[in-house]
Nucleic acid binder design. Sequence first.
DNA 1: TTCATTTTGAAATTGATTCTCAGTCTCGAA
DNA 2: TTCGAGACTGAGAATCAATTTCAAAATGAA
Lengths: 160, 160
Amino acid sequence: MKRTVPKKVSTAAHERLASWIAARGLKSTRQRDLIVDTFFSQTGHLSVDELVEKAKQRDPSIGAATVYRTMKILTDAGLASARHFEGGQTRYEGALDRHHHDHLICTSCGNIAEFENERIEELQDRVAEEHGFTVTHHKLELYGLCAACQQRQSNPNRQR
Amino acid sequence: MKRTVPKKVSTAAHERLASWIAARGLKSTRQRDLIVDTFFSQTGHLSVDELVEKAKQRDPSIGAATVYRTMKILTDAGLASARHFEGGQTRYEGALDRHHHDHLICTSCGNIAEFENERIEELQDRVAEEHGFTVTHHKLELYGLCAACQQRQSNPNRQR
DNA sequence: TTCATTTTGAAATTGATTCTCAGTCTCGAA
DNA sequence: TTCGAGACTGAGAATCAATTTCAAAATGAA
Ligand SMILES: [Mn+2]
Ligand SMILES: [Mn+2]
Ligand SMILES: [Zn+2]
Ligand SMILES: [Zn+2]
């Protein structure tokens, strides 16, 4: 049985993906569209599991392998970026029209905040330079408790 | 003729481990000693595989599981720290009398350089503060090419 | 020496991700 | 339209690092 993909949003992301696919002889498929659609309709840093979950809600026959494969394509096309925070599973976030940023991760509730700090970036470059290194990419992650979790911790009654 | 007792290096590390072990009803074993000894006789950031390798050179019957278990103990005792660089396997480095530092990793030859930058640390704290976060730990890793590998790349003949 | 407890190595298991493969689907000819 | 080479898919097998299980061995306090 054939399932129609609901509303076809033709966003910049969809277009870029289309040309990326066309440019290398790939083919566009119903599953791919559904997964990409699902991914871009979300915000934040999704784990593959979460994505599989959401995708299966729309079409239970979607396989996890296809989600993995699709996210790899999106990443190669520069439309998503893979993040490897502590915890072992890869998370993806949209990368279109976004510049580099780093993260603050709450180890209690999993909340992830983003930040940019030009000064830090400069200092990193300087450090690399002093060591004769040419930096291609870096990872800066701050782990701890978010404001809400600190609150909860000092006053457990207010929780949730 | 009397055999010499295999040199028992009584370092600060060994002592701290001994009290850590005693304090919680653990037992000291031949394998543990051998692994700990092997670990501290090396410098740098060793993968568990590398450690297993070295340990087996001294006693081929050492099991990998024991190395994993021992490194966990050393880490809990604050004598080693686990690092999770890109590439998937955990690496350990000695942690005794060392303060916090971050890393520069060459993606070509695997060389790892260390650095400390108080200014960056301060800026990180400020960022966290602005977001209401309390940071417990962080990860700052700069990936790229070390000086030697840049050289090699621009002049392949000089290689090796 | 005794013996409760801890430790060990091998093998099984886990969890995330990748690979394999046989059946399907796409899409540019013809 | 139809055709077919090649791309794609889902399920399950395979990887890989790390953990767990388990029966046998070692440790150490009494
Ligand atoms: Mn982000
Ligand atoms: Mn280090
Ligand atoms: Zn939180
Ligand atoms: Zn190098």
